Amino acid sequence: MVLRRLAARRPHVLTIAPAPVSPDDLPLRLAVEVELARRRWPSATSPADTDVLLVLGTPGPRLAQVVRAVWATVPAPRVAVGVTTPGAVRSVLDDAAARLAGRGGDTTSDCAVQRQHGRTADTGVGDRADTGVADAQMADLAFYDRDGLALDAVHVALGPVLPHWPAGLVVHATLAGDLVTDARAEVLDVPATVGPGSRGRSPLGPDRTRLDILTRVLGLLGADHLAARARDLRDHDPEPGELTTFGRRLARHRPLRWATRDIALVGGPVEERTVEQRVLALARALGGSLAPPVRPTPEKATQAMIGLELGAARLALAAMDPDTTLGAGPVAAYAPPQGEVTHHHHH
């Protein structure tokens, strides 16, 4: 009873969104973020932290597998809901809160989950390795850390359900300790190539695109007040001078610069050479009527993660903000060479 009341009062919401290939996908994500901020409902950090599983749009077959796998790990009391239009966001969230308050345990039947998330096949969740739901393989390949100790190579799929992570993106990475030694991009349910007219488009406009990127970077850094301010400026019409003032505040923010200073962006996916330079460029351009920032393809952005520690790699990816509408093509799951012993680890 107590858990049910607490969950209904301020439920933790885990959102799952497809890559924004439809004109309605991006406005829907923004509408959800605005409404969650208005209600002060916190974002869930993992399935175990989730009260409401909120699915945006209409997932394709691969993302639908992710939804099923995630739902299987969400503890009760729990609710799964879907929303396809910005105008329905409030009513959907009201319904989720009411269902949480009404009864404990599962408040969405298996059949309802199948209907909401496009499921038409079996009820198992054995596809985790293919969906990118944190399924890792540890191989007997020796890497050497800075102190000369040999480390096992861990092959892991990162995404697509992570906080401040590009929608629909899965990064197939090899880790030696916490160092990314190899990385390949996959965008779920998006073809390898799209029409040439879509490259470089910025549906949000220059300043809102910059603020959207800054919201993710600041959120990953734990700068919640700055992230909330960036999101508020993105979602509303700022007064004259507000964007410039906020940009100057970020540029002078020493902890922000210190936290991003030594994170290199190797391979030229964007104009800036470090995450610090990228953040400064985004901040200083606010309110300046400049062209939208360069957003690399998922392949190039993922390659720039190689050589970085995992936390820094996530910051670099958020700062680059790869355009997942461009697709990344199919990526085969990691398969160790014959005779190599592997161990499976689920996180």
Rank of each mutant, 00 (worst) to 15 (best):
M1N: 14
V2P: 03
R9A: 15
R10E: 12
P11D: 09
V13N: 11
L14H: 00
T15A: 14
T15R: 07
A17D: 01
P18D: 02
P20S: 00
V21R: 03
P27R: 06
P27Y: 03
V32K: 02
E35V: 06
R38P: 01
R38E: 13
P42M: 07
T45P: 09
S46K: 06
S46H: 01
P47L: 04
T50C: 15
D51A: 12
D51V: 01
L53T: 03
P59Y: 03
G60W: 13
P61G: 02
A64T: 13
R68V: 11
A69E: 14
W71D: 15
A72S: 15
R78S: 12
V79Q: 09
G87C: 05
A88W: 06
V92L: 07
L100D: 00
G105L: 11
D110I: 00
C111S: 15
H117T: 15
V125I: 13
R128C: 06
R128F: 05
T131K: 00
G132T: 02
V133S: 10
A134H: 10
Q137V: 15
M138A: 11
L141D: 13
A142D: 13
Y144Q: 01
D145R: 09
L149M: 12
A150R: 03
D152Y: 13
A153R: 14
A153D: 10
V154L: 08
H155G: 06
L158G: 05
L162S: 05
G168I: 13
D178F: 00
V180I: 09
T181K: 11
T181Y: 04
A183Y: 05
A183Q: 08
A185V: 01
E186I: 02
L188R: 02
D189F: 01
V190N: 02
P191S: 06
G200E: 12
G200V: 08
G200Y: 10
R201K: 14
D207I: 10
R208D: 00
L220T: 08
L220S: 06
A227Q: 13
R229A: 11
A230N: 04
D237F: 10
G241D: 07
T244G: 15
T245V: 11
G247M: 14
H253F: 07
R254S: 11
P255E: 08
P255R: 02
G267T: 04
G268K: 04
E271Q: 13
R278Y: 04
V279L: 00
A281H: 05
A283W: 05
A283H: 05
A285P: 08
A291F: 09
P296E: 00
T297D: 02
K300M: 10
Q303A: 08
A304H: 03
I306L: 03
G307E: 03
G307N: 02
E309H: 14
L310S: 00
A313D: 00
A313G: 11
D321M: 09
P322F: 06
L326T: 01
A333G: 14
A333I: 12
P337Q: 12
G339S: 06
H343C: 00
H343G: 09
H344L: 14
H345F: 12
